[in-house]
Amino acid sequence: MPSVVKLPRKNHLDLAQRILEVARQQGMRPGAHLPEQQLATLCNVSRTPIRAALKVLAERGVATRESDAGYRLAVDLSLPADFDSGLPRAEEAALADAILRDRAARRLGGTITVTELMRRYNADRRTVLKAVLSLTDDDILQRAPGQSWVFRPIPDSPQSIAASFEYRLLLEPAAVLVPGFQLDGVKAAALRHGMEALLSRPDSEFGTREFQRLDIEFHRLIAQGCANPFIADALAGHLRLRELPGHAGSVNVFRLRQSTQEHLGILDNLEARQYEVAADLLKVHLRLSGNQRPQAANRGAPPLQGLIRRLV
């Protein structure tokens, strides 16, 4: 039976990630002091949870503790290393990941109950409920009558992936064109480093997961830069679905390299404030990325685009 090991509390991990975000925004360099009171004010919490979150960062080597001066930043946040994903997952977050993995592989049905999940993952009711509620908050699950939850559509079939690209084609270029677009320069620089490092690798070492991470971060950067909060929220919610297991269609290295180069071209234009050019390039990029293989092909037969109804 799959089980989830005991892990740190989710609120401490969330706060640790928030601290990194604040440190990035403040342009903190390695060795910079991480003042508890200031962080508590910026994160709108008391000093006690900040101290616990700093401890989590220290355990991961992202911060160091000095007995008299408190905590200092130990890493360069402008470099492409993914410190956030290096943090351990909270128990309920790890369970949510396992639920998503198993739904994508159709090990779980479209409707689930807390009791079923407790049995399957050998987890207590509180942890399962927290995981289910976090998936509900992310619009992945929806409460159904009785004690059950239903999975909402996610882009994991040829048709839903096509619909997802259609949605993004409407919103992502628009996000760039809304007056007041603001690019997060620090994140953009880190992404650029990451993409250039990926492109420098030979085909045999090309990391598809690394590509996927940078791809998601790149499109999230665009959503976050949008001056219209409704468009930004809608895009952020939808992009979250792209992180789910089962979504990633494997593509060959040539296209992944080309796609990364397209990201860099868009980034160049965003940094130069050429927003209309960036929006046009984004459209081309999404159209090329949305291309799908035929679902069936056989000699003498016309290749099938789209799905076929189940007959057997």
Partner: peptide, 22 residues
Amino acid sequence: VGGMRDAYEAVPDNVHLDAWFP
């Protein structure tokens, strides 16, 4: 399983389905 992923339920824990593999 190509585009037929939704035709499957209760897939075993040692099986991973996908629409396409390299």
